[in-house]
Design a protein around this nucleic acid. Structure first.
Lengths: 332, 332
DNA sequence: TGCATTTGTGTAAGCGCTTACAGCACGGCA
DNA sequence: TGCCGTGCTGTAAGCGCTTACACAAATGCA
């Protein structure tokens, strides 16, 4: 990768300006000259240095993406949609995981210096820095976060779906409920889900903090909960991974799902479908979130749009076996 | 992000060289001067332009990673390990998915111009291009691929584990086997697994091509296989996703796993543990593959090492319920 | 006190491109 | 024949940094 435009120019017997014009198609170039240039390019196997191009153009042709942790299907799916569209738009994708990192601020700032804009998951970035980035003029799209000035936000609907899910469970005839998740750690999505079920079920549901959103934390919390005195009839989990943990806990305690206790998740990750009983959940359009984010960013970067956009995508309940037999619904 | 070193220099009343030295700690700078510089940096909120730095330094401080498709836990896990170590080493990670892309060559070349080296999954890149990249002096690490000159290769062990898995199944008393996967599409890993079980089971196992490595293709192939006349007693799948598909097929046909048919996977992805019956599989150290790749690349880039390395990591069988009860083994 | 170091700082030459501007040749037209 | 486009190409000024080199000032030592 170290043949430069100068060598091409020399070989073709023209100036570097002509090489550049011939290659980019800007400005007029005589057919014969173009041919000479292309031939030299071919022979030397020349690829313009991205660094040189970017420096001169003043743009990176790259997008960043910041997530708290790539583990788990949710982030992966979003990333997938994001990268696909970004690539379509001619932009590379630079990733950054903040989990367990010290000096996150520096990492983010470094990233900001490598890209034209970035997608940030929820609260993966300290609040103070968010303001600074906005002030710096970095193009930003936030995922699953309350709208804020100076940046796009993108999310999928939570409250109404949560209410619908809660209603569905109540229609089963269940009366005691628990919500399993970490609603106190400011993941807006989960907070909304909690408020949704709460609004529907009122005092019949209690929240249990799992601390994290992992199979393990779900398992631990569910085990404690199911062993306790007032065992809930149904457990609404903040996401599928927590729910998978709950299923494991029930299994360990010899409880039948959904016979003894119903369980629901959120996201519809792959494992949800393969768990037994298959997990009732709410499908979030994860790839589309990523894809939309990439397009939104493109609009902001190219300047097609300069006012922030705040969009909410709809979700879809997926009723499977883990919530119990329900006459009105089909099963997957 | 558009305050430059010149403005800092002016504000601090020094030259840009001094600013650079003060910030990077190269060369001597008087304490008082350093303070002035830092103050100016602070006030202007200056971050050196990555482009400028890279151009001057002649390095990107970034690594690439190329995968056929990010879908599925295998790639994610590797990516996770890779990004973590790369970040530790001060390198960003630029991703590129080749699935369904036209002009892959251009994408790869563009990527090569953005990074100091890259990790490439198996055969995600056309063979012809591999040679060209090597010739161009791009630092490369290949995953799950036969050793080739001019680049590192990294893989996890397949043949011996496959033989061990096959032996384990035979010890159950099973006699007719099938191998489900797409061994003909040149994924070296899978090819080795097939050869391993084949070496152990000989004519007792037949290969069935699924075309892809997805739950769906596994489902389709397994359904056809299980409906057919000579139904195998055990199905060895090329990876967990195919195996999950096989479990679904068995369920649909009303067959008991492992009572009627045993199923095994490969990789030990999250869903393997949550499937019912839980999937017997072979754990591949996915994160470590990523982490090692990042370190290997670093060695090549920094020049600590200049001869290619070819490493094989060991795998670990994970015996769960899907292969049947087996007195000698514990169950997870 | 004088000289050789050391320390601190600035100047300027890159790094590899893009592009505004200028210049040159050629053809068409009056 | 003279003049004015038009088409093509080259020159050179950036883009934002790093760093070799030169030089001045401060220090150490005899």
């Amino acid at each position: 990768m170290d043949v430069t435009i100068y060598e091409v120019a020399k070989r073709a017997g023209v100036s570097i300006a002509t090489v550049s014009r011939a290659l980019r198609g800007t400005g007029p170039v005589a057919a014969k000259t173009r041919e000479k240039v292309l031939k030299a390019v071919e022979e030397l196997n020349f690829t313009p240095s991205r660094l040189g191009v970017s420096l001169a153009e003043g743009r990176h042709a790259a997008n960043g993406i910041v997530f708290p942790d790539l583990a788990g299907p949710y982030y992966t799916e979003v990333l997938l949609g994001y990268e696909e569209v970004a690539s379509e738009l001619g932009r590379s994708v630079v990733i950054l995981s903040t989990k367990g990192r010290t000096r996150v601020n520096d990492l983010i700032k470094d990233l900001a210096g490598r890209v034209d804009g970035m997608l940030i998951f929820g609260h993966a970035v300290p609040e103070l820095l968010v303001g600074e980035l906005v002030r710096l003029g970095v193009r930003l799209v936030f995922l699953s976060r309350d709208p804020l000035p100076g940046a796009d936000t993108l999310r999928s609907e939570n409250t109404a779906s949560a209410r619908a899910l809660a209603r569905h469970l109540r229609d089963h005839g269940y009366e005691r409920f628990a919500f399993l998740g970490a609603p106190l750690t400011s993941r807006d999505d989960v907070d909304e889900r909690w408020r949704g079920v709460r609004a529907e079920l009122g005092g019949a549901i209690e929240a249990v903090d799992t601390g994290h959103y992992t199979v393990e934390s779900g398992f631990e919390a569910a085990r404690k909960l199911l062993k306790g005195a007032g065992r809930p009839r149904a457990i609404v989990c903040s996401d599928d991974e927590v729910a998978l943990g709950a299923l494991l806990a029930a299994e360990e305690l010899g409880l039948d799902v959904p016979g003894d206790v119903a369980v629901t998740g959120w996201d519809d990750i792959m494992a949800a479908r393969h768990a037994r009983p298959a997990l009732t959940t709410v499908r979030q359009p994860m790839r589309e979130l990523g894809a939309r984010a990439a397009r939104a960013l493109d609009e902001l970067i190219t300047g097609v749009r300069d006012t922030p956009n705040h969009l909410t995508l709809t979700t879809e309940p997926v009723i499977r076996a883990s919530c119990g037999h329900h006459p009105q619904e089909a099963r997957t």
